[in-house]
Simulated assay, not measured.
Amino acid sequence: MSDEQDINRIKIVLVEKKRSNKWLAQELGKDPATVSKWCTNTTQPDLQTLAKVAALLDVDIKDLLWSTRS
């Protein structure tokens, strides 16, 4: 893990799926600035929103989180 505060992997998974922050914001009906904050780990989405992100990106919700185990 690059930084102790990096909790989610949304930005990485978006890149892997060739999707943009703007696309995700539109799909969720969220402000692009909000999604940007999630991607930089400035703030975190709630679990319900994270589940929606996982469904939109067709990944397991665990794929959006950094493992807490080494």
Rank of each mutant, 00 (worst) to 15 (best):
Asp60Lys: 12
Trp23Gly: 04
Asp60Leu: 10
Pro45Leu: 08
Ser70Thr: 09
Asn41Val: 13
Ser70Tyr: 06
Ala55Tyr: 12
Gln5Ser: 14
Lys52Phe: 13
Arg69Phe: 03
Val59Phe: 05
Leu24Arg: 04
Thr42Trp: 05
Trp23His: 04
Met1Leu: 02
Leu65Gln: 09
Gly29Cys: 10
Met1Cys: 06
Val35Tyr: 07
Asp31Gly: 00
Trp66Gly: 08
Asn41Ser: 11
Ala55Pro: 05
Ile10Asn: 00
Ala55Gly: 09
Ser67His: 05
Glu16Lys: 10
Asp46Tyr: 00
Ser20Lys: 02
Asp58Met: 12
Ile10Val: 09
Thr49Asn: 01
Trp38Met: 06
Leu24Asp: 00
Ser36Leu: 11
Gln5Trp: 15
Ala51Thr: 10
Asp58Glu: 15
Gln5Asp: 15
Leu24Val: 08
Arg19Ser: 01
Asp31Val: 01
Val53Cys: 08
Thr40Gln: 07
Glu16Val: 04
Asn21Pro: 09
Leu50His: 06
Asp58Ala: 13
Ser67Trp: 02
Lys17Val: 03
Thr68Arg: 13
Asp6Val: 11
Arg19Lys: 07
Asn41Arg: 11
Trp66Asn: 12
Leu57Ile: 01
Asp3Cys: 06
Asp60Thr: 11
Ser20Gln: 00
Ile7Thr: 11
Thr34Pro: 05
Asp60Met: 10
Lys37Thr: 14
Leu56Glu: 15
Asp6Cys: 12
Lys52Asp: 15
Lys18Ile: 01
Gln26Ala: 14
Val13Ala: 02
Ser70Phe: 04
Lys11Met: 03
Gly29Asp: 11
Arg9Glu: 05
Thr42Asn: 09
Ala55Thr: 14
Leu65Pro: 07
Ala25Ile: 01
Ala55Ile: 13
Ala51Glu: 14
Gln5Asn: 15
Asp31Ile: 01
Ala55Arg: 14
Thr68Tyr: 13
Ser2Ala: 14
Lys18Gly: 02
Gly29Trp: 07
Asp6Asn: 11
Ser36Val: 14
Asp6Ile: 01
Ala25His: 04
Leu50Tyr: 09
Asn21Ile: 07
Asp46Asn: 08
Asp6Met: 07
Leu28Lys: 00
Thr43His: 04
Gln26Phe: 13
Gln48Val: 00
Asp58Pro: 09
Val59Ile: 11
Ser20Pro: 04
Val59Asn: 08
Ala25Tyr: 07
Lys11Val: 06
Asp46Cys: 03
Lys52Asn: 13
Cys39Pro: 05
Asn8Ser: 12
Glu4Ser: 14
Trp38Gly: 08
Leu28Ala: 09
Ser36Gln: 11
Ser36Ala: 14
Ala51Ile: 14
Thr40Trp: 02
Asp46His: 06
Ile61Ala: 03
Asn8Val: 13
Arg69Cys: 02
Lys37Ile: 10
Leu24Thr: 05
Lys11His: 06
Leu57Lys: 04
Glu27Thr: 15
Trp38Pro: 12
Asp3Glu: 09
Ala25Gly: 03
Ser70Gly: 12
Ala54Lys: 11
Arg19Glu: 04
Ser70Lys: 07
Glu4Tyr: 15
Leu14Asp: 01
Glu27Ala: 13
Arg69Lys: 13
Thr68Asp: 11
Ser20Ala: 01
Asp6Ala: 07
Ile7Tyr: 12
Asp58Asn: 14
Gln48Ser: 01
Lys30Pro: 02
Leu14Phe: 01
Gln48Ala: 06
Asp60Trp: 04
Lys18Phe: 00
Leu57Ala: 06
Gln5Lys: 15
Glu16Thr: 02
Ser20Asn: 01
Asp60His: 11
Gln5Tyr: 15
Met1Asp: 02
Val13Glu: 07
Leu57Thr: 04
Asn41Tyr: 08
